[in-house]
Design a protein around this nucleic acid. Structure first.
Lengths: 213, 213
DNA sequence: AATACATTGTTGCAATTGCAACATTTTACA
DNA sequence: TGTAAAATGTTGCAATTGCAACAATGTATT
């Protein structure tokens, strides 16, 4: 998995940050990071810690839009932060780098090879992000909860080439990821279980079918 | 809008294509382009023409996944082509460039500035792609057809800063984009019209509310 | 201009879902 | 360890939706 400073020495990393006028910022657990991002085309890179992008909709409901772990990149340009109220909240003590995106694109230091490496690393991280978004789209565009679950299982299973799926988060969060009501999802999971298609033990789901379709 | 060969002279463009061992391919209208993409980590760039990525689901239904216009980029890495049957079909005579993605990342010509430019252009195109996917996710994760439509209107309206929305495609395709049944969407549009929120004339929709929420 | 094909409009009905409300279990942390 | 908060399980019911079927309109092609 590509990381943002791969193939860049720590000396060059300092240079690069200076050229791009990058800022390092520290947040305590439960701090709101949003205000540093809304006004400009900044992108943020999580160096340490863990944060979440939360949407607050018109009814006041909070939902998790993205989990930001170490090496993750976020910002108005590359997260869905445009037409909703949202907050970015540090869930642990978190250290981030802020960079003006335009500076990355318009940087004139074309002869510095670490700048090329940085661009290539960004490119790879973006590619992964696109793939993740495609997967989620593939899932949420299915028309029934059952089909969303099966698509989710299919993708998760093929990633590890295994019939066992370990949910990376709670069922509550899974419902949010699938964009369905949690209780309705539980209901459907029970059906799939009763019909003998899956087995659930805590966060481990076993697929009991070979080829569903 | 960033284009793939921005800031690269045509001489350097030829050099670049040689270094990356890129192939140019031509397709006639209705040709299938899929077979050139499935096996390897190739990315395709549409130079001329227009193509579509079509998903064929387990019932045999065809749906449009992506419209590929000039300068668009596609491929297994950056399109949702993994867990479904799909086809990429030229809808007009279409010319594409095929490049092995790994070669872009592992290319050692670090001193060539046109290579950096190319990477930066790719980065910008990817950024736009991520934004588009985010927008669609923002829409399709809404729980009712009404809210999907309103979110779509909101995004379209804020893009052109106007109360008039010109649908870039048919209502049939809009339903596919929103991932809802077409007839159910028509029903909901009629409701919004009857309630005085919108006006529809052909492909032009007028928003009659200031702030819906 | 005639014909075939695609798009749009409409409706009844059954299936699915969201929502609300509540009980139970698990987890976090003071 | 005890307590509060979060997560999970369950259910009835009303609202929304998908589906099927068909009519009407619009568009493209020869």
């Amino acid at each position: 998995m590509a990381q943002i400073f791969d193939n860049i020495s720590s000396k060059n990393r300092v240079k690069l940050m200076r050229i791009l006028k990058a800022h390092t910022l520290n947040f305590k657990k439960d701090d709101t990071m949003t205000s540093y991002l809304i006004s400009e085309n900044n992108i943020g890179i999580i160096l340490k810690g863990y944060a979440q992008i939360i949407r607050i909709d018109h009814n006041g409901n909070r939902t998790i839009i993205e989990d930001l772990e170490e090496e993750d990149i976020f910002g108005t340009l590359i997260s869905s932060l445009k037409n909703s109220e949202y907050e970015i909240i540090a869930k642990e003590d978190t250290e981030i780098i802020l960079i003006d995106y335009d500076r990355i694109i318009n940087c004139k230091e074309n002869n510095k090879s670490f700048y090329l490496e940085f661009t290539k690393n960004l490119l790879q991280i973006f590619t992964i992000k696109i793939t993740e978004k495609n997967e989620r789209l593939e899932i949420v565009t299915k028309k029934t909860i059952r089909n969303k679950l099966l698509e989710y299982f299919s993708i998760a299973s093929s990633k590890h080439n295994s019939k066992y799926i370990y949910l990376p988060y709670t069922f509550t969060d899974l419902a949010d990821y699938l964009a369905v009501d949690r209780s309705a999802m539980t209901r459907e999971l029970k059906c799939l279980k009763d019909e003998g298609f899956i087995e659930i033990k805590g966060k481990r789901i076993t697929l009991l079918y070979n080829d569903f379709w």
